[in-house]
């Protein structure tokens, strides 16, 4: 009973406490308005270069947009505890760590889904993105899996926030790197081998590929391989993220670093 409350009630409260952009005045410009232009920009750049259809860029960027939550909100969920000096009080409580951790991931993932959905709507309204109606449920599923995967990845980065001070540097770099390596605007086949290899180990890559196929009418069965890979990648990151969280907690007690800021 307490576990459920810790996950949902606790997770919700800590999200409000730590997510820097929670106020609508921050949220709307940062997570919704800015990314509109990201989609517009890449679609127009694609048109200018006479490349793939608009759909290619809309799908790629609409999925990637959720990374603003998945990468940055995740980092904030952990790293901001240091800023407020609440990491020590948090870890001094007897609460089990896994529910705390999962509780923090849920709002972030929900946030990512909202952003992605918004991106797809913009693509539809402004750029005429029209996937076949029958594909939409499958598309939604792929987006959910991708968002989960990115959130887990984000929390892996965020766990370093328990140890390192400038973790936002890492998350910024990771966010930009994902733009390039995950096939958001350039298909993996056009990238040098090493980039594509790294990309295949990152979230989004498989999800975006699957979503693109679905958007032009492929069946869920035909992309199931990609979807499962995305799910697997997310699961691995989840385990690593939690492992790091616990490891750094123990290390923090040993090295007396829980309160350094």
């Amino acid at each position: 009973m307490t576990t459920m409350r810790l996950v949902f009630v606790g997770g919700g409260i800590s999200y409000r406490a730590l997510f820097n952009w929670i106020h609508p005045a921050m949220y709307v410009p940062t997570m919704l308005l800015g990314p509109i232009f990201q989609i517009l920009f890449f679609v127009y750049l694609g048109r200018y270069n006479g490349l793939q259809s608009d759909s290619f860029f809309v799908v790629g960027n609409a999925v990637q947009m959720s990374g603003m939550a998945g990468v940055f909100a995740s980092t904030m969920s952990i790293a901001n505890e240091r800023q407020f000096g609440t990491l020590a009080p948090l870890l001094a409580t007897p609460a089990a760590r896994l529910p705390i951790f999962v509780g923090r991931m849920l709002p972030v993932a929900a946030n990512g889904l909202v952003v992605s959905a918004f991106g797809f709507c913009i693509g539809s309204l402004l750029l005429g993105f029209r996937p076949p109606l029958s594909s939409i449920p499958a598309l939604a599923l792929v987006v959910v899996v991708s968002v989960f995967s990115c959130t887990a990845f984000g929390f892996t980065l965020g766990s370093f926030g328990m140890r390192a001070r400038d973790v936002f540097l890492i998350s910024n770099l990771a966010y930009y790197v994902m733009w390039l390596f995950c096939g958001v605007n350039v298909p993996l086949s056009a990238l040098p081998g090493w980039m594509a290899t790294i990309g295949r180990g990152l979230p989004f890559t498989h999800g975006i590929a699957a979503a693109r196929a679905l958007a032009v009418g492929a069946s869920l069965g035909s992309v199931s391989g990609q979807v499962l890979k995305e799910l697997a990648i997310g699961s691995v990151y989840l385990i690593v993220a939690f492992g790091l969280f616990r490891a750094f907690e123990v290390e923090g007690r040993r090295r007396a670093s829980l309160e350094t800021y």
């Binding site: 606790g10 409260i13 409000r16 407020f84 000096g85 609440t86 020590a88 009080p89």
Partner: peptide, 15 residues
């Protein structure tokens, strides 16, 4: 330090 600035005292205590 040591408190969630953005939240009310009540929310801090609830958490």
């Amino acid at each position: 330090r040591g408190l969630y600035e953005r939240l009310s005292a009540l929310d801090n205590l609830r958490y």
